[in-house]
Write a protein that binds this DNA or RNA. Structure first.
Lengths: 250, 250
DNA sequence: GAGCGTCTGTTCGCTAACGAACATAGACGG
DNA sequence: CCGTCTATGTTCGTTAGCGAACAGACGCTC
C-alpha cells in the first residue's frame, strides 16, 4: 500500500519539492514510539504520511494531557524553526503508520531561504496554536463525553478511514482523564449507535451524530485550520508525483 | 512617570530600533479595553510597556478562559506575522497601563526583512506556545488553589510591583472558574499570610510561599521563557534610550 | 482447547467545583 | 452623614470526575 503523502509537502511549489526531495526518508512508526521526549534536542522533523503523532505534556507526577495532534496535514517539530531547539512536550505515535523524516539542519536551511516553505510552516504553526488554545478551553469547560467526540473527530480527519485502533486506556492518557471515564463515555456513544468499540478497535458509524454530540471546539479548530491552510482541502498535487522518499528505513 | 520599556523592543539591535522608532505610538490602555475581538483583522500590534494583556477564548455560551498573558516581555498580535490575519481569541487589557502600538503593515514589513526582528518574534511566539500548552495541562489537572497561585505569579512577573488591581470576579473570568471559587482560594492564601486582598487590590506579601503553593506549571513556563529569551533577564539596553514614542495618543 | 493477559464494564465512596441564593461591608457620591 | 453600589464572604444542595477494587470477556499463544 502506497502511503498517503503529506499535505504540507504537497502544497510546496515544485522547485522547493525538487530541492528537498532527496532529504526525505520514509520511515515506519509503530504505535507508542516516542519521537521526542520533553526537552530533547530535535535531530529530525517528521512529516506524517498516514500516521498520527500526539504532542503531550507530562507532569511531574506522571499525569499527562495531549495538547495537539499532528497528521498528514502537518509537521512534528515546529519549535526547531521557531528558534527553540526543543520543547517541553513529548511527541508520541498515537496511530501507527509512516512519515517522512528530515534532518533538522536541512529543514532549517530550507526555512532560512525565507521562501514558500517558511510561509507554509508558519501558517501551519498558527493553526497548531489554535488547536492548543482550544484544547485549553475545552479542558476547562467541557465534559468527558464532549471531549471524546472532539478527539474522535480530530483523529478521523487525520486518517482516511472510519476505523481507528486505540484502547480506551490510550484515549484516557491523551485526554488526561481516567480510563473508566472513557469507558463510560464510549459506552454511551455505543448505545446511541454512533460508534462501535471492540478491544482497541473503534468504528465510527454515524459521523454527523458524533459532530452533533461534540463540543464546539472541534468545529472552531477545523474552521480555523481550513482558513489558514485552504490548499489542504483541495488536495492539489503540483507535480508531487515525483516526491518519493530517498530510501526506506525500518 | 516614565513607562517601562518593552523587552522585545529593547532586545533589538540599534539599527532595527532606529528603523522602527518612528512607527511606534505610546498609547494608554484602560482596564477592560478590548484590543482584538475573536476573528478581527488586526490593524495594529501592541508592545506592552507597563500593562498586561490577556488573550482569552470565549465560547458560544459566554464561558471564557485565558490562554496566555502578555506583558512587557512580549507582543500582542503574533498571528499577524504567522500568516493568519486574525485569531479566534480576544485580547483584553487585564492590567491598565501603556503600550507601544505599531501599524500591522509596518511590522509585517520589518518582519519580512527576515532579520533580527523576525528571529525575536518567532522565539517569543515559541514561548507563547509553551504558555498555552501548559495552561491546557494545568486546566486539566490542577486545583483552583494552585492555578490562582500560578496566575498571580505570572502577573507579578509582568508588573514590577507586588500589588495588582484586579477583582476576584475578573480573576475568575481569566481562570474560567466561578467567582466563589476564587474567593475561597484567595481566602486561604490570605489566612496563610501570603497575600492581602482588599476590594480589588491584591498585595503579595510572601512570594516564596506563593511559589511553593503553586503547581509546577508556573516554573515550567518561566524556565522555558528564560531559555528562549535570555536577554529578558539581563535587561540590557543597547542604545534603547533613544526609543521614545513618536507621539502620545490618549 | 486450555490458560493467561489484556481490554472493557461496573460499582462504591469521596472530593472539587458548580449554580444559586443571600449576607456583610468597604467605597464613593451626593 | 447617608444611601447605594460593588466587592467579598458564606452557605447549601448537586454533579462530574476521581481512585480503588473487582468481574467478565475477548483473543492470543502454547
Amino acid at each position: 500500500m502506497k502511503p498517503q503523502l503529506n499535505h504540507l509537502l504537497e502544497a510546496l511549489p515544485s522547485d522547493v519539492q525538487d530541492r528537498i526531495f532527496h532529504s526525505l526518508e520514509l520511515i515506519a512508526l509503530p504505535l507508542g514510539q516516542v519521537l521526542y521526549e520533553s526537552g530533547d534536542t530535535m535531530r529530525h522533523v517528521y512529516f506524517p504520511a498516514d500516521c498520527i503523532i500526539s504532542l503531550l505534556y507530562v507532569m511531574e507526577n506522571g499525569a499527562s494531557a495531549e495538547i495537539s495532534m499532528v497528521g498528514n496535514e502537518g509537521i512534528v517539530g515546529v519549535s526547531l524553526f521557531m528558534g527553540g531547539l526543543s520543547t517541553p512536550s513529548r511527541a508520541i505515535v498515537q496511530s501507527a503508520g509512516s512519515a517522512y523524516r528530515m534532518k533538522s539542519h536541512l529543514l532549517k536551511d530550507e526555512f532560512n531561504r525565507h521562501g514558500d516553505m517558511m510561509l507554509l510552516l508558519l501558517r501551519y504553526t498558527q493553526s497548531l496554536i489554535t488547536q492548543m488554545a482550544q484544547t485549553a478551553v475545552c479542558n476547562r469547560h467541557h465534559s468527558i463525553d464532549q471531549q471524546l467526540c472532539r478527539w474522535l473527530l480530530l483523529s478521523l480527519d487525520r486518517l482516511n478511514d472510519s476505523k481507528l485502533t486505540m484502547t480506551q486506556e490510550q484515549i484516557a492518557n491523551m485526554l488526561g482523564v481516567r480510563r473508566e471515564g472513557v469507558t463510560e463515555a464510549a459506552g454511551k456513544l455505543q448505545r446511541k449507535g454512533v460508534i462501535n468499540y471492540n478491544r482497541g478497535h473503534i468504528t465510527v458509524l454515524d459521523r454527523p451524530k458524533l459532530e452533533a454530540l461534540s463540543c464546539e471546539c472541534y468545529s472552531v479548530v477545523k474552521r480555523e485550520t481550513d482558513r489558514l491552510l485552504p490548499h489542504m482541502a483541495g488536495n492539489s498535487l503540483h507535480g508531487i508525483e515525483a516526491l518519493k522518499p530517498g530510501h526506506l528505513v525500518s
